[in-house]
Computed example of a mutant assay.
Amino acid sequence: MDNSLIDTYRTTDYRVRLAQGGWVSIQVDAALPASLHSLIGERNWAFITAWNPGSQAQPLAQNRAAQQALLIALRKLPRTTCIRPGLGVGDAWREASLFVVGPSLADIDELAQQFQQNAYVHGLGHGYARLRLSSDRPPHAQAG
């Protein structure tokens, strides 16, 4: 994966829909917004999509079907405590996404590979958001 694509992921605005309305933005390498603290506690969280596998544009219907399959898979994970709608916003694109609380990195890594995603954003508790690169071979890497 080239550095320009990684830079694109790092500068994306990762928006989470709040239950009371509105959106809050997660930024890579920044602290988790306070408005998400009570939702997360000390659990793992991730921001992931099934749209545009391999960062290659796909038809809307295909993206929607993949996103629905990801939502179903996330709901089946035993540690999932919350799923909120999300939106990844770049300079010239938007992707529907999901913010999920509870699953382990291993579970999210597996889903990222299954849905052919190059990367996703994750964190633990109120800590910093990190970009995690996906791979078909361990170990997975933190983008630095």
Rank of each mutant, 00 (worst) to 15 (best):
S104N: 06
G90A: 03
L124P: 04
Q113A: 14
N44F: 06
E110L: 03
R15C: 13
I40F: 04
L60I: 02
A34D: 14
L18V: 02
F99V: 01
R130A: 14
Q62C: 10
F99Y: 05
D136E: 07
T49K: 00
I83R: 01
Q58E: 05
A73P: 08
I40K: 02
Q67K: 00
D91Y: 15
A19P: 05
R75G: 05
Q114W: 12
R94E: 09
V100D: 08
L133S: 03
D13V: 06
A30Y: 13
S97E: 08
A96M: 06
F47G: 03
I108H: 04
P139M: 04
G102H: 05
F47M: 01
L5S: 00
P59T: 11
I83K: 00
L32D: 00
Q116M: 08
R84T: 07
R94W: 05
L124M: 11
G123L: 12
G127D: 13
A96C: 00
D2I: 09
R75N: 01
D136G: 14
D7R: 13
S97V: 07
R43F: 12
C82A: 11
I40Y: 04
A34V: 10
N52I: 09
E95H: 02
R79G: 02
D2G: 01
H122M: 15
N44H: 15
A66E: 12
L98Y: 03
G21H: 14
S38M: 15
H122L: 10
N63W: 02
L111E: 06
G21L: 09
L77W: 00
E110H: 13
A66H: 01
T81H: 09
D7W: 14
F115H: 06
R79C: 06
L131T: 11
H126E: 12
R10D: 05
P85G: 01
D109H: 02
I40Q: 04
A50L: 03
V89R: 06
E110C: 12
I26L: 10
G88N: 09
A119K: 10
R15V: 13
S104E: 11
Q67G: 00
I83E: 00
E110D: 07
M1T: 07
A73G: 00
G22W: 10
D91V: 14
A19C: 11
L74V: 04
V16L: 03
R15I: 09
P59Q: 08
D91F: 11
G144M: 15
P59D: 08
I108N: 10
R130Y: 08
R64Y: 05
A73S: 09
L18E: 10
A92H: 13
G144Q: 15
D29S: 11
P59G: 08
G88C: 00
H126K: 08
S135D: 14
H122T: 12
I26P: 07
